[in-house]
Design a protein around this nucleic acid. Sequence first.
DNA 1: GCGGTTCTGGACCGAATGGGCCATAACGAG
DNA 2: CTCGTTATGGCCCATTCGGTCCAGAACCGC
Lengths: 198, 198
Amino acid sequence: MARPRKFDEERVLLAVRDAFWDKGYAATSLDDLLQASGLGKGSLYGAFGDKHTLFLRALRDYDNTNLLALRESLESAARGIDMVRDFVLGPAADPTGAVSRRGCLLANSNAELAASTPEVAAEARRSYDAITAILTEALERARREGDLAPDADPADTARAVLVAQLGLVALGRTGEAPDTLAAAARSVLTRLLPAAAR
Amino acid sequence: MARPRKFDEERVLLAVRDAFWDKGYAATSLDDLLQASGLGKGSLYGAFGDKHTLFLRALRDYDNTNLLALRESLESAARGIDMVRDFVLGPAADPTGAVSRRGCLLANSNAELAASTPEVAAEARRSYDAITAILTEALERARREGDLAPDADPADTARAVLVAQLGLVALGRTGEAPDTLAAAARSVLTRLLPAAAR
DNA sequence: GCGGTTCTGGACCGAATGGGCCATAACGAG
DNA sequence: CTCGTTATGGCCCATTCGGTCCAGAACCGC
């Protein structure tokens, strides 16, 4: 019927996500987005709407990708506890610290925008609730597999695990030395899930 | 000698801090700052320098106040463990959720700016290191008072406690229901410091 | 009361912002 | 090949940004 798009929508979304991730929402100008995506103003605007809409779209994409990866991680884990351990240790896993320093797009965005942009806070709640559900499932499995005390409540433990991971992400974002970060991760993991620490 | 200042520097700093706290650094315009402080451009600029400098000043003020309060809290605590418990439960203590939703200025700022403004990340590290030291002292005392297992390492435990608190602050910033937040706080506290949970 | 100095707040500036617009190009259907 | 449709990207605009500057006001010591 008509002229087809020259760009791959998903690719643009990833480039835009990176731009927002690196500079934050407010500090990323339309120009930055155009340069990152390689598109012209009309194209970007026509395909995704204004900056705000585009940002939310990229953020939701990011979240969905993460949730999917988490679910897959649980399915492919040898034991339920393994997935939980990886989840907690993840933010401290990078020996160079570069990944940790970048933080999590959702956490960064929520911290920056929760007060002024309810959609971001809502997205964060949605994401964290979903993660809690996945962790709960993982911990139920871990209990059946003998890696979690029979009297421990999986849902309650899941909340504690999520909190620990959020804390590690926040701490990693400060650029704390990788060793310190790893020590903190190990410390909190040992106390929350002794069976996962060895 | 000359005309004295009409405004109280500390008062202005608090007003400015609130403005940044509510909107984030980038989204707060000079106009916002003038309105919040009630000063004219020349006065604010002359007294504090540009936006960036003013922000760092307000942030450091905020940090120092927090650290001082934490030290006082330790000194006035009946037991070392009480101070640690209050520190962890703090972010979830507000039944309306308004305080939690506001988050922590330092955490918000670090999440927004760590990548682009090294001073902010450095300030966060400084603050978190200082908090860890205070917590370590509190936990050493708690161990002497029988509220921490003799074989537990206070410094290591302090790191875990800090991570938990940062996680709760991050979770609270999403606007999660106060009940859920309180449950998460209680869950993580029970697991990190059984003696503090009752 | 006077002089000198500092404070004050608004006028002003250039630059950059987010967003709208449109002439043109590129394509598929017929 | 032609036509209609849609993507494209650069041009344009009003607004707002952070920051400078200055004329006048306010105050102190003398």
